[in-house]
Amino acid sequence: MVKSEAPGFHRLMIGDCEVTVLSDGHLPLAAMKLLQGDSSQIAEALKRNFLGEQVETSHNSFLVNTGTKLVLIDAGAGTLLGPHTGQLLNNLRAAGYRPEQVDEIYLTHMHADHIGGLIAGDQRAFPNAIVRADKRDTDYWLNEENMRAAPTEAKRFFQAAMVSVSPYMRAGQLKTFDGITDLIPGVRAQPAYGHTPGHTMYVVESKGEKLLAWGDIVHVAAVQFADPTVTIGYDVDSAEAKQEHWRIFEDAAKNGYLIGGAHLPFPGLGHVRSNGDKAYAFVPLNSLL
């Protein structure tokens, strides 16, 4: 028995931009414990989709090559979440790139599974990259007072953010933005606050084609598309996160653009379809992997 997996990357074109989805690995998510909503309906949705209380969850990042800039959207978990994640660097190399080639890193938010891969040991894993994030997230997660005031079980989120981002801060390579921001030609930051104070999506557009890399809008597709009211225990503001579900699902279904999710089944690409009154469905991209 080989007991190893093939390199996890998938490539597609968005107009003139080459997008490579990089798998950082996968982890079981305690869906029944963490999802917040009608527990009986959540259990039924899981059963209907042949899932149990633990759902194996993909961790996806998106590498965007515009031809002039190489941009990584989220950096994976690094060593923070154990041996089943932290595969981003290996998969980046397998996809034909090197970490030192990455010009910029855009963070959807500063949870451990999106920032731990910024460092290798205590050094910058991407030595030439500028790291960008919404200032609401940096102000929240890099604040010592917020960490001291947080419940004991939540302090690790602050510690992970501080450890992962500090080498870039010391090098002057952390830059913040505020809300909707054109970052480079073809890539725009778009707020989707709620999951964290500065949770941000990134719009990649070229030649009339569009990909929305939406970060952690959805954690369990089998449940949350059909019932957008379901949130997750990791949401900092669950009421705001719920409103973002409605807003983004409606817009994506109406306009038909491609979405990329950090925790949708790898490669995390597809479309959102309206599925009756106040319900939606995820349609995975029809492509050869």
Results as ranks from 00 to 15, higher is better:
residue 32 M to G: 11
residue 169 M to S: 13
residue 272 V to K: 13
residue 157 F to C: 04
residue 2 V to S: 08
residue 206 S to L: 05
residue 268 G to H: 05
residue 273 R to E: 15
residue 155 K to W: 05
residue 119 I to P: 14
residue 1 M to S: 08
residue 239 A to L: 13
residue 152 T to C: 14
residue 16 D to Q: 14
residue 256 G to M: 12
residue 177 F to G: 10
residue 252 A to I: 12
residue 97 Y to I: 09
residue 210 K to S: 13
residue 187 V to N: 06
residue 20 T to L: 11
residue 239 A to H: 09
residue 206 S to R: 05
residue 59 H to S: 09
residue 238 S to A: 09
residue 68 T to D: 06
residue 67 G to F: 01
residue 287 S to V: 07
residue 28 P to N: 13
residue 286 N to S: 04
residue 88 L to T: 01
residue 229 T to A: 04
residue 24 D to L: 01
residue 11 R to Y: 01
residue 199 H to T: 07
residue 239 A to E: 14
residue 241 A to I: 09
residue 180 I to P: 14
residue 240 E to T: 08
residue 223 V to G: 09
residue 105 I to Y: 04
residue 117 G to I: 00
residue 58 S to V: 10
residue 200 T to H: 08
residue 10 H to Y: 10
residue 274 S to N: 04
residue 18 E to I: 00
residue 28 P to G: 12
residue 154 A to D: 06
residue 191 P to Y: 02
residue 88 L to N: 00
residue 250 E to L: 08
residue 222 A to K: 01
residue 26 H to D: 12
residue 251 D to C: 10
residue 207 K to E: 14
residue 9 F to T: 03
residue 262 A to D: 03
residue 4 S to M: 15
residue 236 V to P: 06
residue 244 E to T: 05
residue 80 L to T: 06
residue 259 I to N: 06
residue 131 V to Q: 05
residue 258 L to V: 10
residue 107 L to R: 02
residue 212 L to C: 08
residue 123 Q to P: 15
residue 212 L to Y: 10
residue 261 G to Q: 08
residue 31 A to M: 11
residue 101 Q to W: 00
residue 276 G to N: 13
residue 85 T to V: 05
residue 147 M to T: 11
